[in-house]
């Protein structure tokens, strides 16, 4: 019998993988992809809660999350393109303007 906890553990593992990608990869494009993984793990847990608690709110929020994720990717990639035009790099540690 598959319970809520199975889904939550799966969500947790995916979340950790996403975070690992964000922390470890130098390529900012892969970092953005890892963020999508994080979003997905959250979506799974929201949908699972929604299913097992017989509520609709979780699913509604999955819709919102997907929308926000789409918006985030659009803006993030736009920024990435602009940065690449100027610096000719996609490596995160080369972008340290915020220190100054």
């Amino acid at each position: 019998m598959i319970t809520l906890y199975h889904y939550l553990v799966l969500s947790c593992i995916l979340f950790a993988i996403g975070v690992a990608g964000v922390l470890l990869r130098r390529n900012i494009l892969i970092v953005l992809m890892s963020l999508e993984l994080v979003f997905n793990s959250v979506n799974i847990s929201l949908a699972a809660f929604s299913h097992f608690l017989q509520s609709m709110a979780g699913k509604v929020f999955v819709v919102f999350t997907i929308t926000v994720a789409a918006a985030e990717v659009a803006v993030g990639l736009a920024i990435l393109v602009v940065i690449f035009r100027q610096k000719k790099t996609v490596y995160v540690e080369d972008l340290s303007e915020m220190r100054h």
Binding site: V19, V22, L23, V31, S96, E97, R99
Partner: peptide, 14 residues
């Protein structure tokens, strides 16, 4: 701590 490197901030946050 204020290195300006995005991922170090993310590391601190996590």
């Amino acid at each position: 701590l204020t290195t300006g490197r995005l991922q170090e901030y993310a590391l601190l946050m996590v």
